[in-house]
């Protein structure tokens, strides 16, 4: 699947790297810009399938990229945005997860781009409406809810973390080197213990897990 992507990143070297990875996986970068204002303009002009942006960017050198992404989503609630950051912070994640119906949201540590194959996979998932959270953010969320989660087995906790990152059952099975059937069994048990709705829709399941962890 070839996607039309707008890339915003103020470091020229990093921008080149991002464009390199996206084109390597067959996507089309319709604009690669270096500040938040140019991002707003480019996204309006090209109507991309995905916006990939850094959080910290000119003109303010603050969280301008994040605010631009939020503004774009307000105009086009179905626009997938994948946000990259040098630091992972719960406060930035919360800002993104509070957006609309949370479809097509991604928040990753910039380092994850270096694992190019997985990153390319993430791009496609977010563009397809998935919610993808960095494992580090999920780890922090899991720690916060230590008490109710202590009833889960170590394996179930691993599965829960991967679910919260937004991975599919097949991807979870691959990551843990177990069968899909085993993963399904774990998921059923986790949802039941946490009192979450057992639902066929994978995306709604991710959201339920995230909502549970953040509450």
């Amino acid at each position: 699947m070839s996607l039309k992507v707008v890339v915003a990143e103020d470091s020229a070297l990093m921008r080149e790297g991002l464009v390199g990875v996206l084109t390597r996986f067959g996507h089309q970068v319709c604009a690669a810009v270096g500040d938040a204002d140019a991002l707003l303009a480019a996204a309006g002009e090209h109507r991309p399938d995905l916006v990939l942006t850094d959080i910290r960017m000119p003109p303010g050198q603050g969280d301008d990229g994040l605010r631009a992404a939020v503004a774009l989503r307000r105009d086009r609630p179905d626009l997938p945005v994948l946000v990259l950051s040098q630091y992972l912070e719960q406060s930035y994640a919360a800002h993104l997860l509070d957006l609309g119906d949370q479809r097509g949201i991604g928040y990753l540590l910039k380092d994850r781009v270096a694992a190019v194959t997985e990153f390319a996979d993430t791009v496609v998932r977010v563009a397809g409406g998935g919610t993808v959270l960095d494992p580090e953010v999920v780890r922090q969320l899991l720690r916060r809810r230590q008490d109710p989660l202590s009833g889960l087995t170590p394996r179930e906790r691993e599965v829960l973390a991967l679910m919260a990152e937004g991975r599919s059952n097949a991807a979870i099975a691959r990551a843990l080197h177990v069968s899909v059937a085993a993963v399904n069994k774990h998921i059923g048990s986790i949802l039941q213990r946490l009192g979450l709705p057992v639902d066929g829709d994978a995306h709604r399941r991710v959201l339920a897990v995230l909502a549970y962890l953040r509450s």
Binding site: G17, D111, V113, A114
Partner: peptide, 11 residues
């Protein structure tokens, strides 16, 4: 710079 280099290494 280091993150960018890491991305290039990935490619």
């Amino acid at each position: 710079r280091l993150v960018s280099v890491n991305v290039m290494l990935g490619l």
